[in-house]
């Protein structure tokens, strides 16, 4: 176990193993998203209430899932970095933050665009959208805090503490916003939460969610490799690798 952790902590080992994993992740991501998109856009039946506008669900829900999962992954990476001082974990956390913010933005944008045909307005203080907006602020805070430190190590540790504090707060924020929403708008129609969804609609959604997760893993591996190159640029193995690549 310890040997594994330390091996995993070595940027060189990670760089090698991720190169072998990446093609599989990309294959999975592209295949799942492609099949899910075609299925969801062209073959899934239209919703009996919302018509074809419900097809936004196939990007909105995976993006929203990813937005929350990336924050949790980032906090886990931060914990690993703080406890075992594994640098690769911090590199992963550093590249996850912008991706998570982008996914949160996508979830907000698609939710807002979905709101127009559904509610007749671009923005409603819907519980889900409001939590997403708060999540976006949390991401912005983590990114800004990391950038504010001149020393990379201090920035990394400060961002780690903040992501762990944030991840403890996310459920609290989510439940309090849900509670607040039911208090002010009892029993309104909420997008993406329905009692029962036909199987033909559900399958493409599952494919898209899995595809988005594969995409997240692939992009994180890719950008963590970049981060390794950036931070270890002076190391011997990196220079040899770059020279061999030329």
């Amino acid at each position: 176990m310890w040997a594994f952790i330390h091996k995993f902590g070595s940027p060189k080992w990670f760089y090698g193993i991720s190169a072998r994993l990446l093609p599989w992740c990309w294959f999975l991501a592209v295949a799942l998203i492609l099949v899910g998109s075609i299925w969801g856009l062209a073959f899934a039946p239209a919703d009996y209430q919302q018509g074809d506008s419900f097809r936004i669900i196939y990007v909105h829900v995976p993006a929203a899932f990813l937005a929350q999962s990336i924050f949790v992954s980032m906090a886990v990476a931060a914990l690993v970095f703080m406890v075992w001082k594994i640098k690769v974990a911090d590199m992963a956390a550093a590249v996850m933050a912008p991706l998570g913010a982008a996914m949160t933005f996508v979830a907000l944008f698609t939710g807002s665009v979905w709101g127009m045909p559904t509610w007749g307005t671009w923005w409603i203080w819907d519980a889900r959208l409001t939590s997403m907006l708060i999540l976006l602020f949390l991401y912005v805070g983590v990114i800004a805090l990391r950038g504010a430190f001149t020393s990379r190590d201090s920035g990394a540790r400060a961002a780690s503490v903040l992501s762990m504090v944030g991840v403890i707060n996310i459920p609290v924020i989510k439940y309090s916003v849900d509670w607040w929403y039911t208090l002010h708008q009892p029993a309104t129609f909420s997008i993406a939460s329905r009692p029962s969804m036909p199987v033909e609609m559900w399958w493409p959604l599952l494919l898209m969610v899995l595809g988005f997760y594969a995409f997240f893993i692939a992009i994180t591996l890719m950008r963590t490799r970049n981060e390794i190159l950036r931070r270890e640029a002076g190391k011997h193995w990196v220079r040899e690798l770059a020279a061999g690549d030329a």
């Binding site: 998109s37 856009l41 018509g51 097809r55 936004i56 909105h60 665009v113």
Partner: peptide
């Protein structure tokens, strides 16, 4: 079904 602009812009 008339919602093209919304669906396609989101995607």
């Amino acid at each position: 079904g008339g919602h093209g602009a919304y669906v396609w812009s989101a995607w």
